[in-house]
Design a protein around this nucleic acid. Structure first.
Length: 577
RNA sequence: GCGCCCUUAGCUCAGUUGGAUAGAGCGUUGGAUUCCGAUUCCAAAGGUCAGAGGUUCGAAUCCUCUAGGGCGCACCA
């Protein structure tokens, strides 16, 4: 609808340009939805923008433009208003004509035509050294809703999880599991502060015990040596080195077991949350297949790599970063950044037009160096969009819940899901802009009351379904909805609903362009409110036949929009509650 | 110290990318249901858009400064 109206107005602009009234390089014509009904269904500020070029005042230009808009059955009237807006009032037939379209399209209503662009959305990508916590949950809800939204907006989307299976943190997990494994065998162990203390480590150790038996037992005293001259972190590295020596080839059994256990746990957790990936991308594979070496060689050939203090540095400062960055340490091991360079190079080589990375906001300082690396590799850094998700600060009543994987004192995503349910969790997460800090109140999300917006929207859907159930229970015939006489829908509450559902495809487009699924959530709440208002004001089943048929058609169309919107957010649209 | 982000109603937050009288939910106060589900609806009160300048027909939105808050500044991931 919007594009059809825009085309009509564009004809008027073209006519003004053709007649020499306006220069060729006029500003772009944009249509907006005015906040207030009395300003029409659409409005353009074009006369305000172009008046100076035309050498006249905006209102006069608006009048000239109005006179050149071709007549159309879609438009009831045009008005020049305010300082020089041109407001468009749609003919009622134009919105009525939409209802049969929505009823026919059903699940596809609001879906935009396929685009050529391929998008890769990488999200969560939490280190597999512990269960997902509520902070990851926000990234999961946001990333998955965004992926669904982009698909609905016509993009070809792939979802990916980057698994950091190669780093030091995995070694710490291995050591932690190993110590718990000894405990299970009755070996006394002084578990270090720097190890992972969560209960899940014991669970993994029990599984390891079942699989490996006693084959990994070694004396802990030979591993956990004391050295007061070392920092706790340095000491941990020493212990890891000792453990690797002591276990030899068996270390891989231990390391691999911990990794697989955590991977499976995270996978199952996300799947239960409605999040599914096309690919789990291993960081280790980048080392094993030479991708890192290849990327670094390419940088070196461009003169963007140099050696200093025994380490290899990338000249990030040439590409907008504040300083150069180490890619290969003095000890020869590549940094996390090195694998990330290789990973992003490989992403562009796979032919994606848009690379979306969803990161925790604490990684924001990392953006310039990755962009810089892409530039240095000859890739267009603009293709990479890094979307930052602020932390969700969790409250239980007034108490702030702490989250730390290392201490084991954290609220897991799984616990949250079990406590508040998937629907409330996902809706609640997405109800805030991702780059906004968020207070996640567990008690509120848990409350199954009208405090909780997800029930308000779901109830609107269930309520519509209930009307159709009632229809059957009363022995009434289900009428042919598409053939209803929609002109009977003349109440203000019904027009409000019509306007809202007509706007849905535009909401999809702007939300997708802005990467903001929260716009869908807000739209759904508004639509649910309009549905409840109309429901209260106008009885449906007790109306006379033709009017009942028209109202049933309207709420069925609303139902499709609610269901389609909720699906994008990964929230169920229940038949009954 | 430097950099990025944030500051809108009592609380939690929107604000269609510079538009018309700044909105919603919760909370507060007052009302509505012989009828399809009261997990609902209607209404009222509530604002110096952190503060000060600037840009222009027009600013919550763009620029500068100030105050307050968050995050980041590793040969960790």
């Amino acid at each position: 609808m919007k594009s059809r109206i825009a085309a009509l107005l564009k004809e008027a602009v073209d006519a003004l340009v053709a007649s020499g009234r306006l220069p060729v390089d006029v500003p772009a014509l944009t249509l907006s939805r005015p906040r207030e009904e009395r300003y029409g269904d659409f409005a353009t500020n074009f006369p305000l923008l172009a008046a100076k070029a035309a050498g006249t005042n905006p209102r006069a230009l608006a009048l000239e433009m109005k006179a050149r808009v071709p007549s159309s059955p879609l438009i009831a009237r045009l008005e020049v208003a305010g300082p020089g807006f041109l407001n468009v009032f749609l003919a009622p037939e134009a919105t009525y004509a939409l209802l049969p379209e929505i009823l026919a399209a059903g699940e596809a209503y609001g879906r935009l035509p396929a685009r050529a662009q391929r998008v890769l959305v990488e999200f969560v990508s939490a280190n597999p050294n512990g269960p997902l916590h509520v902070g990851h949950g926000r990234g999961a809800a946001y990333g998955d809703s965004l992926a669904r939204l982009l698909e609905y907006a016509g993009y070809a989307v792939q979802r990916e999880y980057y698994v950091n299976d190669a780093g030091r943190q995995m070694d710490i997990l291995a050591l932690s599991v190993w110590l718990r494994y000894l405990e299970i065998a009755g070996v006394p162990v002084a578990f270090p502060e720097t190890g992972y203390r969560g209960d899940y480590v014991r669970d993994i150790a029990r599984g390891l015990r079942d699989e490996a038996g006693a084959s990994l037992e070694r004396a802990p005293d030979e591993i956990l040596i004391e050295d007061p001259s070392l920092t706790p972190d340095a000491l941990m590295d020493v212990w890891i080195a000792h453990l690797k020596t002591a276990l030899g080839r068996h270390y891989e059994t231990l390391h691999g077991f911990g990794l697989r256990a955590m991977r499976a746990d995270i996978d199952a957790d996300l799947a239960a949350f409605g999040v599914h990936y096309d690919r789990w991308y291993s960081e280790r594979s980048l080392m094993d297949n030479g991708a890192i070496e290849r990327a670094l060689t390419r940088l070196r050939e461009h003169g963007d790599l140099y050696e200093q203090d025994g380490a290899q540095w990338f000249r990030a400062s040439r590409y907008g970063d504040e300083k150069d960055r180490v890619v290969v340490r003095e000890n020869g091991a590549p940094t996390y950044f090195a694998s990330d360079i290789a990973y992003h190079l490989e992403k562009t080589e796979r032919g994606f037009d848009v690379l979306i990375d969803i990161w925790g906001a604490d990684h924001h300082g990392y953006v310039p160096r990755v962009r810089g690396a892409l530039s240095a590799l000859g890739c267009d850094p603009e293709r990479l969009e890094v979307l930052l998700v602020q932390f969700a600060i969790l409250y239980r009543g007034q108490e702030r819940a702490q989250m730390s994987t290392r201490s084991g004192d954290f609220v897991t995503l799984r616990a949250l899901r079990e406590e508040v349910g998937n629907d409330a969790a996902r809706f609640f997460y997405v109800l805030r802009k991702s780059d906004q800090h968020m207070d996640f109140d567990l008690d509120l999300a848990k409350s199954q009351s009208n405090d909780n917006p997800v029930y308000y929207v779901q109830y609107a859907h269930a309520r519509i379904m209930s009307v159709f159930r009632q229809l059957a229970e009363r022995g009434m015939v289900m009428p042919e909805l598409a053939c209803a006489d929609f002109r009977l829908l003349e109440a203000p509450e019904e027009h409000a609903l019509l306007r809202l559902i007509a706007r849905f495809p535009e909401v999809i487009e702007t939300a997708a362009d802005a990467r903001e699924p929260h716009q869908i959530a807000y739209f759904l709440r508004e639509l649910a409110g309009a549905l409840h208002a109309a429901y209260n004001a106008h009885p449906i089943l007790t109306a006379q036949d033709a009017l009942r048929q028209a109202r049933l058609a309207l709420i069925m169309a609303v139902r499709h929009v609610l269901a389609n919107g909720l699906r994008i957010l990964g929230v169920r649209a229940p038949e009954a509650m």
